[in-house]
């Protein structure tokens, strides 16, 4: 059983790391702020989410497990809010009114 959970951890953490790779590539290669924002939120939600998911079997129930899930929920909430706020800012031209 332990082996099965370890494999689950490895797969999920690797998948999470892949999304951080994808997020970085997107942030560097995409042409405009809105598409970059899209890449960023994928890394935020899926990257961190999969890493947390993968770490869950390795942590001590209950406090650490709850904390880990809470971290992901905070990141989701923050990502959603900041994503929308930044998209508004980017659409209005990014910089300050000149």
């Amino acid at each position: 059983m332990k082996i099965a959970w370890d494999i689950f951890t490895i797969v999920a953490v690797m998948a999470g790391s892949f999304f951080f790779l994808a997020g970085t590539v997107g942030l560097l290669r995409f042409p405009d702020p809105l598409t970059r924002l899209h890449a960023l939120t994928k890394a935020d939600n899926l990257g961190l989410g999969l890493v947390v998911l993968g770490l869950l079997p390795q942590t001590h129930w209950p406090l650490d497990t709850i904390k880990l899930i809470a971290i992901w929920l905070f990141a989701l909430l923050a990502g959603a809010t900041v994503g929308q706020l930044m998209a508004c800012t980017a659409r209005r031209g990014g910089g300050p009114p000149k």
């Binding site: 942030l27 970059r36 960023l40 980017a90």
Partner: peptide, 22 residues
């Protein structure tokens, strides 16, 4: 633009959290 910079800071934040957890 500064928005792009802030996005990079945000990505670094999530990545930093993931790295810390690992």
């Amino acid at each position: 633009e500064d928005v792009d910079r802030m996005m990079a800071a945000q990505l670094f934040g999530s990545g930093g959290i993931a790295a810390l957890l690992l």
